[in-house]
């Protein structure tokens, strides 16, 4: 989403710089209580300290490990289900009501069930993340597989392919771009679910530290962690976007 231009994009940079300036000045001028809005410089300082003593890196590593673990499990299961559903009417009939019910539901509401079954450690969080990611991935994959232009399939048939090879050599490759897009959508879902689960249930990670800092009124840490979460999201999305452009650029999208 951020613009990328060869020259320095002075308008976007201006608004960000302006924002930081206003933040710093407003905080220093005590327009707001320091508890509510610590100056940017103090936040930056806390950020450096957290990195230096390793607490931030530990938390980040733990959260990312959980998020990715859940993302992988959820995406793999979701893609498999979506593909199976697209090929088999029985599978579609069987799985559809669960997907239809689960998709609009707030998955975080299921956290207590996962905690009950798997404790407050990492496994409950990984499984919750997987659970949250499955639904959009199933739907996206299903739609992608169903919408492969029938002209592609007919061409393949007339060139002598059988049903099975059509699936693996025509439908599947045609789906890759849309499945990847679905994966990209699942990444923020995974991150949000991980952080929220950590905030609710504790057990280490970015979310847990964030909520502890809030409870002990350590606002610089709160702000610092939020900034880090934002950067993580940005970096991940840019990385995925450039990957998509490089390897899946052939799709018309």
């Amino acid at each position: 989403m951020p613009q990328k231009s060869v020259l320095i994009p002075w308008r976007p940079v201006t608004s960000v710089v302006l924002l930081l300036l206003v933040w710093e000045l407003a905080a220093r001028a005590k327009l707001t209580p320091p508890l509510f809005l610590p100056p940017f410089s103090v936040v930056a300082d806390q950020l450096c300290r957290s990195i230096a003593d390793g607490s931030l890196t530990n938390d980040l590593a733990l959260s990312l490990a959980r998020a990715f673990g859940g993302l992988l499990v959820g995406t793999a299961t979701g893609v498999a289900c979506g593909l199976v559903m697209s090929r088999s009417r029985f599978a579609e009939w069987l799985i559809d009501p669960f997907v239809a019910l689960g998709f609009p539901a707030p998955k975080i509401a299921f956290l207590p069930i996962f905690i009950l079954w798997f404790g407050i450690g990492s496994s409950s969080k990984i499984l919750l993340v997987a659970f949250a990611c499955i639904f959009p991935v199933v739907i996206g994959t299903y739609n992608a597989a169903r919408s492969v232009g029938r002209l592609f399939v007919w061409s393949a048939l007339s060139l002598g392919s059988n049903r099975r090879s059509i699936f693996f050599h025509v439908i599947l490759p045609a789906c890759y771009p849309r499945i990847f897009t679905t994966f990209r959508i699942a990444v923020p879902v995974a991150l949000i679910t991980t952080f929220t689960a950590e905030m609710v249930a504790g057990g280490g990670g970015m979310g847990a530290t964030l909520i502890y800092s809030q409870r002990f009124f350590e606002s610089p840490t709160v702000f610092a962690y939020i900034v880090v979460m934002m950067c993580v999201g940005l970096v991940l999305d840019s990385a995925l976007l450039s990957f998509q452009r490089r390897f899946l650029g052939w799709a018309e999208n």
Binding site: M1, P2, Q3, P9, R11, P12, V13, T14, S15, V16, L19, P188, L191, I192, F195, T196, M199, G207, L210, I211, S213, Q214, V222, Y225, I226, M229, M230, C231, V232, G233, L234, L236, D237
Partner: peptide, 20 residues
């Protein structure tokens, strides 16, 4: 042009992180 970076920034921020 002015608003995009702010919007883009919130895109990558998990909103639940703002709850605390």
């Amino acid at each position: 042009a002015y608003v995009t970076p702010i919007v883009g920034g919130t895109y990558s921020l998990p909103k639940s992180a703002l709850i605390p």
